[in-house]
């Protein structure tokens, strides 16, 4: 189990709504807004909003995560956008 998988839900929660760079196995690197971190597999779900294109979702599997670096905090608009991606209907922003 790697260091990332050993973190607690409260640690992972600090990454939600942050723009991050994830270094993964075999020199793969991914960037995006953190939607969530699965507390079971430690997989990181990243969202990105390319202009005039659908939302791009990336799931980096927990076992492959080597390092996660926070680059930026989301503004309110981005937070709202992130919270609405998967919600079946209008719902409140994520606040535990």
């Amino acid at each position: 189990m790697n260091d990332w998988q050993k973190k607690s839900p409260l640690d992972w929660e600090t990454y939600v709504n942050k723009r991050v760079k994830v270094a993964a196995e075999e020199k793969n690197e991914y960037e995006g807004w953190v939607l969530t971190v699965d507390p079971v597999s430690a997989s990181v779900v990243l969202a990105d909003f390319p202009e005039n294109e659908p939302v791009s979702i990336l799931v980096v599997l927990g076992h492959a995560v080597q390092e996660v670096n926070i680059m930026q905090d989301a503004d309110d608009d981005t937070k709202a956008r992130l919270s609405r991606i998967f919600e079946p209907e209008e719902s409140k922003a994520y606040s535990p």
């Binding site: 839900p9 992972w12 929660e13 939600v16 699965d38 507390p39 079971v40 779900v45 919600e87 994520y94």
Partner: peptide
């Protein structure tokens, strides 16, 4: 309690991700 609530919220979003995929 705080850990469990956070865990549930994080997990819920992950399962919604898989459902969407």
């Amino acid at each position: 309690k705080a850990t469990q609530a956070t865990r549930a919220a994080l997990r819920r979003r992950f399962l919604l991700t898989l459902a969407a995929a």
